[in-house]
């Protein structure tokens, strides 16, 4: 089932390719996540040995940082090698390692990654809405500002998504949470 969903996600990412040259929001906030999700679903449920959990997370984080660089965005639009690298690497070096390590990560690390994601989106939002110059040569200034606001919306949506379970109550009995905290 996951395999099919991964395929659908990948095909959707190919389908939106038509719009990515003209719209950075579709490119960064629709196509990139679709590609990462396809990799995630491809190996969802599988696991790796403990020693590889750290490296997997580092690989995913470094890859995300790379794909966040404005020059990467210009490069994938102007360079065929980078264009194909996008379709291969976003699933394989973002989605796959995240799926393999996520369940094995310590609760605190997971929380840290989530809060960092939200704050990074906030920083990007500020950068793209306030930059006095065009950050990407391939996109119009109005689209750059629109992308900035979209970063804010996604940050807000993720905050809600991740905070709601906290108020819904603990899924694990309290004594287990205490036990987990003691491990720290």
């Amino acid at each position: 089932m996951n395999f099919i969903l991964a395929g659908i996600s990948f095909l959707l990412a190919i389908a939106v390719q038509f719009w990515v040259a003209g719209d950075p929001v579709i490119h960064v906030l629709v196509q990139f996540p679709l590609l990462a999700i396809s990799g995630y679903l491809l190996v969802a449920g599988q696991t790796i040995r403990d020693v590889w959990v750290g490296p997997a997370l580092v690989l995913a984080v470094c890859s995300i940082l790379f794909w966040m660089l404005p020059r990467t965005l210009d490069a994938v639009l102007n360079d065929w090698g980078m264009h194909f690298a996008k379709f291969a690497l976003l699933p394989l070096t973002v989605g796959v390692p995240l799926a393999l390590c996520w369940k094995r990560l310590h609760l605190i690390v997971r929380g840290f990654v989530k809060t960092e994601t939200i704050s990074m989106l906030g920083i990007l939002g500020f950068l793209y809405t306030h930059a006095p110059v065009r950050i990407c040569n391939s996109y119009l200034i109005d689209d750059q500002i629109r992308l900035g606001f979209s970063f804010f919306y996604v940050a807000g949506a993720l905050s809600l998504l991740w905070i709601i379970p906290v108020f819904r109550g603990a899924e694990v009995p309290t004594n287990q949470i205490i036990k987990k905290l003691r491990i720290l």
């Binding site: 403990d50 020693v51 590889w52 959990v53 750290g54 490296p55 580092v58 690989l59 984080v61 470094c62 940082l65 790379f66 660089l69 404005p70 020059r71 990467t72 210009d74 490069a75 102007n78 950050i135 990407c136 040569n137 391939s138």
Partner: peptide
């Protein structure tokens, strides 16, 4: 795990340095 993670951080950091010309160019 610690050693592997450290290696991954070093490799990843080197990769990002390379991709940004030593943190000098973030834009095209």
């Amino acid at each position: 795990g610690f050693i592997l993670t450290t290696c991954a951080v070093l490799i990843g950091g080197a990769g990002l340095l390379w991709a940004t010309d030593g943190l000098r160019a973030f834009t095209a």
